[in-house]
């Protein structure tokens, strides 16, 4: 049985390098983990800081003698621009708040107008409905009045008829009397 393996120079090179890198880093990690080195670093950092401070102080001193602007002067001017920018930002925020407040008020106003319009429409509809009802009622009343007028005529006719009946009765009585009187006259002659 044979196992065929492909050996690429670069792959092997990378693997070995990775191995070395990891080994060296582990070694370095352990090697630097000591108090002496930390103390030495502190001394170095402090010395370097003092050196930079002195360098800057001297630089400022020379620049002031020659009346030259330094990077610090430029930075101070630039700081004013940043402050102005901050103020613009604050203003922008206030404008936004106002815009939002206006938008909210406008929205409320819109809602209010909408409600008023809806109420108006409702009133209009109610009015039309009432008017329709009223006209129906008026019509009905009119009919009733007409009917009432007819009834009045009948009453008058009845009264007339009653009058006529009375007249008829009267005529009947007169006729009766007339009939009796000739008979009386005849007997006397």
């Amino acid at each position: 049985m044979t196992n065929e393996k492909t050996a690429d120079f670069f792959t092997s090179y990378r693997k070995i390098s990775e191995m070395w890198e990891k080994g060296l880093n582990d070694f370095l990690f352990k090697a630097v983990d000591n108090k002496e080195l930390i103390g030495l670093t502190k001394v170095g950092v402090d010395a370097h800081s003092r050196y930079v401070e002195r360098l800057k102080r001297n630089h400022e001193l020379i620049a002031s003698y020659w009346n030259l602007p330094t990077k610090k002067d430029v930075a101070n001017v630039a700081e004013l621009t940043i402050q102005a920018e901050e103020k613009v930002d604050m203003l922008e925020q206030q404008i936004w708040s106002m815009q939002d407040a206006f938008a909210a008020t406008f929205q409320e106003q819109q809602t209010l107008i909408q409600n008023v319009m809806e109420f108006n429409q409702q009133m209009h509809n109610e009015l039309i409905k009432t008017a329709k009802g009223l006209s129906a009622d008026v019509k009905k009343l009119g009919n009733e009045i007409t009917e009432a007028a007819d009834l009045k005529n009948i009453e008058e006719m009845r009264e007339e008829l009653a009058g006529m009946k009375e007249d008829l009765e009267e005529m009947k009585n007169l006729l009766k009397q007339a009939k009796v009187q000739p008979e009386l006259a005849g007997s006397s002659t």
Binding site: V32, D33, I38
Partner: peptide
């Protein structure tokens, strides 16, 4: 490394001056 973490946390090693 552990000792460096400790030095920074207890203030032995500071960078304020820098």
């Amino acid at each position: 490394p552990e000792k460096w973490v400790k030095a920074i946390q207890d203030g032995t090693l500071g960078f304020d001056q820098l």
